[in-house]
Amino acid sequence: MIQIKNLSKLYQTKHQKIQAVDNVSLNIDHGEIFGVIGYSGAGKSTFVRLINRLEEPTEGSVVMHDQDITKMPANKLRKKRQKIGMIFQHFNLLWSRTVYDNIAFPLEIAGLSKAKRKEKVLELIHLVGLSGKEEAYPSQLSGGQKQRVGIARALANDPEVLLCDEATSALDPETTDDILDLLVSINKRLGLTIILITHEMHVIQKICHRVAVMESGKVVETGDVLDVFVKPQSKTTKRFVQQLNPLEHEKDKLSDFINDRDDSEVIKLHFIGNRARRALISEVAKKFDVEINILQGSIAPTQEGAYGTLFIEINGEKTILQNAIAYMKETGVEAEVVEHA
C-alpha cells in the first residue's frame, strides 16, 4: 500500500506564493490502477512528481511499503527510485539510442551484466509489442511505439509502482486505447500498482479501479470509478462525467423528444455491471400496461463492469406507472423521476 498523508507543495516566487498541492491524503492499494484527474493547473502533475521526490514536498509524507520516501537520504532515495517507474507525456527517450539501447539504459546504470541486460531487454520488447524494432531509432517510430519504449524502459528494474504523467495526452484516440490496453495487461500480468495522471475522463473510465479528482491543489472527491460515475458529488467531477455523455446532465434538452402527456413520466435509469445486459425495457413493456419511449442513452465499460444511463418516457395510468417504476428499482437498477418542462 502507498500511504500519502497531508502532502503539500508551496512554491515561493518573488511576488507571490503558489500552493500547487494542498494537504492531499490518499491510500492506494497494492496492484490497483489509481487515477488522478484534474483540469490544467489542478496540481496533479506536481502531485505525482512528489511521490518519487522529483519535486520536494513542503510538508507531508509518502510511505511506500513501510518506507517513508520523504525522509530518505539521497543515497537510499536513488536506490528506491529504481523501484518506481515513470512514463511521461512526451516520452523522454534518448534520441541517439536505438529501442534496445533506450530500454537497456537503466539496466546499465543498475550494473547488470551484458548477458542479463540482453535477456531482460528482449523480454520487455516482447511484452510491449515491439519485436522487430530493436534497432530502430525514436525518430523512426510512431507516437504509440515511442510510448511503448517508454513503458518498457520504466519496467526495466522490475518496479513496485508505475507513475504515468499524462502518458496518452500526445496520442490519437486509437493509439491511446492501445496504450491503455497495454497498461491493463501489464497491471494484471505483473500485479503492478499504477498511478495514472490525466485530464481525460475516458482514460479513467477505461482502466482505473479508483479515482481522485483534484482542483486547485486539493482532492475534492475520491472513490471507486463506478460510484463516482453514478453519483458525482463535486462540480468538477460532474463536469468530467459529462465528457462521456454530454446530454446526461442537460435534461432540459430532452423536451424536444418528450410527448409530455398528462399520464407520462420521464425516468433516468442507471445500469451498473451485469444489470446493463438485462432487457429491462422489454420486461416492463410486457409486464405492465404502459408505453415506453426511449429518449437517449449511453453505455461504457469500466474495470469494475459496464455503466449505462438511459432516459425514457413512460406513459400509463398513474398507479400502473408507480408499480412499473417500483419494479425497475427492485431489479437493482437506479430509477429517478426527472423533472421536465
Results as ranks from 00 to 15, higher is better:
80 K>Q: 13
124 L>Q: 06
336 E>P: 02
303 Q>K: 15
98 T>Q: 09
109 I>V: 15
248 E>Y: 14
246 P>M: 00
111 G>R: 06
13 T>Q: 05
252 D>H: 14
335 A>E: 05
124 L>C: 07
220 V>Y: 06
331 T>G: 02
65 H>P: 02
264 S>I: 08
211 V>Y: 05
106 P>S: 01
149 V>E: 05
57 P>F: 00
29 D>P: 03
188 K>M: 13
48 V>N: 05
125 I>V: 13
238 K>F: 02
29 D>L: 13
197 I>Y: 07
50 L>E: 07
288 F>D: 01
265 E>G: 00
169 S>V: 12
66 D>Q: 14
182 L>P: 12
236 T>P: 06
278 R>P: 02
93 L>S: 05
337 V>P: 00
130 L>W: 10
236 T>C: 01
324 A>T: 12
178 D>K: 10
89 Q>E: 13
77 L>D: 05
300 A>D: 03
53 R>C: 02
284 V>I: 15
294 I>G: 00
21 V>I: 08
23 N>D: 15
288 F>V: 05
141 L>S: 06
277 R>A: 12
297 G>A: 03
266 V>T: 07
241 V>F: 04
135 E>N: 15
20 A>M: 07
52 N>P: 11
270 H>M: 03
235 K>S: 14
269 L>W: 11
183 L>W: 08
81 R>F: 04
13 T>L: 09
236 T>H: 02
179 I>E: 06
252 D>L: 08
244 L>D: 06
171 L>H: 04
115 A>G: 03
65 H>M: 04
218 K>M: 06
319 T>R: 13
230 V>W: 01
45 S>M: 02
192 L>Y: 10
332 G>F: 08
160 E>D: 15
159 P>E: 01
335 A>C: 11
146 K>W: 11
264 S>V: 05
168 T>R: 01
319 T>M: 02
293 N>G: 03
29 D>W: 10
175 T>P: 12
151 I>C: 01
60 G>N: 05
250 E>V: 12
327 Y>R: 08
183 L>F: 10
140 Q>L: 05
88 F>K: 12
272 I>D: 00
64 M>W: 07
314 I>P: 05
234 S>H: 15
235 K>A: 12
172 D>M: 04
268 K>A: 09
145 Q>V: 12
129 G>S: 06
273 G>Q: 13
298 S>N: 13
322 Q>I: 10
58 T>F: 04
269 L>M: 13
53 R>V: 06
81 R>W: 10
140 Q>Y: 08
133 K>M: 08
94 L>S: 08
38 G>F: 04
4 I>A: 03
89 Q>A: 04
339 E>Q: 11
99 V>R: 08
28 I>Y: 06
41 G>F: 09
292 I>E: 00
194 I>K: 02
303 Q>L: 14
82 Q>S: 02
151 I>N: 03
204 I>V: 15
32 E>Y: 14
173 P>Q: 01
37 I>T: 03
10 L>M: 11
107 L>G: 03
23 N>W: 03
147 Q>H: 12
